[in-house]
Simulated scan of single mutants.
Amino acid sequence: MVFFALLVGAELDGLTNLQPRGGCDDPSYPYYFKLRCESCGETSAKTTCVSLDEVVQLPTGKGTANLLQKCKLCSREGSVVVIPGQGTPLTAEQSQKGEMTCLMVFECRGYEPIEFAFGNGWKAESHACYGFIGVLIISLFFKVHGTPFDIDLSEGEFDEYDEKGECPVALSKLQSTFKVVKKQGFHGKTRYV
C-alpha cells in the first residue's frame, strides 16, 4: 500500500479558503482522477470517481475501500481508500507564495492516482479588498467574514464580482499533483507527511 496526498494550488485574486463545497472532508465530494496500474503500467482511459460516502467490501472480506477496480489490460484488482482529516483549504497567503495545500490523502493498493480533474462543487470566500493595512485594522476590531462563492472549476478558472466587498474576485492557474507521503504518529494522532 502507498499513501498519496492530493496537493492543489491556484492563483487566487481576492479569494481565500478554496476547498470542496462541504469542506475538505466532504463525504459526497467526488474526486476525479485517472489511475495507473502498478502491475502493468496501463493508465485508465477515463477518469475514475472516488468519494468518502461510497464504500465497498474487499473481496478478501477483510476491510473496505472507497473504490475497487480491475485493470482493463492485466485484470489485476486494486483499491483506493480515502483518508479524511488531512486536508486544509488553499488560503490567499499560500497562493501568493505559490504554495500548494494537501486536500486529501488516498491509500492505494495496486494503483497510482494521476491527473486530478477539477470540476464543480467548490467554494471560497472573498478576501477583503481593503488592502493589507485596512484588513489588519478591521480584523483587530471586528470579526471579518468574506462573501462566500460557490465555484465551478470545470473550465479551470473563476471570475466574479463581490458586491459586498465592492471588488472583483478571480481564480486561475489551477494546478494539482499527487505526492507519496508516509504515515506517522504525532502526539497521538496520525499524520501523513
Rank of each mutant, 00 (worst) to 15 (best):
residue 40 C to S: 04
residue 183 K to L: 15
residue 44 S to V: 00
residue 131 G to I: 12
residue 8 V to S: 03
residue 58 L to D: 02
residue 111 Y to G: 00
residue 60 T to H: 03
residue 88 T to Q: 13
residue 108 C to N: 06
residue 20 P to R: 02
residue 71 C to A: 06
residue 65 A to K: 03
residue 164 K to Y: 13
residue 21 R to W: 01
residue 11 E to K: 11
residue 92 A to D: 11
residue 37 C to E: 12
residue 164 K to A: 13
residue 37 C to T: 12
residue 83 I to M: 15
residue 167 C to V: 09
residue 34 K to P: 03
residue 171 L to A: 09
residue 55 V to E: 08
residue 166 E to F: 03
residue 53 D to F: 00
residue 10 A to S: 11
residue 145 H to N: 04
residue 62 K to C: 13
residue 23 G to D: 10
residue 127 H to D: 11
residue 175 Q to C: 12
residue 144 V to N: 07
residue 72 K to C: 04
residue 81 V to C: 01
residue 83 I to H: 10
residue 49 C to P: 00
residue 150 D to C: 05
residue 178 F to S: 03
residue 93 E to Y: 14
residue 57 Q to C: 06
residue 70 K to Y: 07
residue 184 Q to R: 04
residue 137 I to K: 08
residue 146 G to M: 08
residue 35 L to E: 05
residue 3 F to A: 00
residue 71 C to I: 02
residue 126 S to Q: 04
residue 18 L to V: 09
residue 162 D to F: 00
residue 47 T to G: 11
residue 29 Y to C: 08
residue 84 P to N: 02
residue 165 G to N: 08
residue 55 V to L: 03
residue 117 A to M: 09
residue 29 Y to F: 15
residue 70 K to E: 09
residue 13 D to P: 00
residue 110 G to S: 09
residue 132 F to A: 10
residue 114 I to D: 11
residue 72 K to S: 10
residue 84 P to E: 02
residue 78 G to H: 07
residue 187 H to M: 06
residue 125 E to H: 13
residue 22 G to K: 06
residue 121 G to P: 05
residue 21 R to E: 05
residue 180 V to H: 00
residue 94 Q to A: 12
residue 75 S to C: 11
residue 71 C to E: 02
residue 161 Y to E: 11
residue 183 K to N: 09
residue 81 V to K: 07
residue 173 K to N: 11
residue 123 K to S: 15
residue 3 F to P: 05
residue 173 K to W: 01
residue 191 R to Y: 13
residue 37 C to H: 14
residue 87 G to A: 13
residue 18 L to Q: 08
residue 34 K to G: 07
residue 21 R to L: 09
residue 112 E to V: 12
residue 129 C to Y: 03
residue 28 S to T: 14
residue 37 C to W: 15
residue 89 P to V: 10
residue 127 H to Y: 15
residue 189 K to A: 04
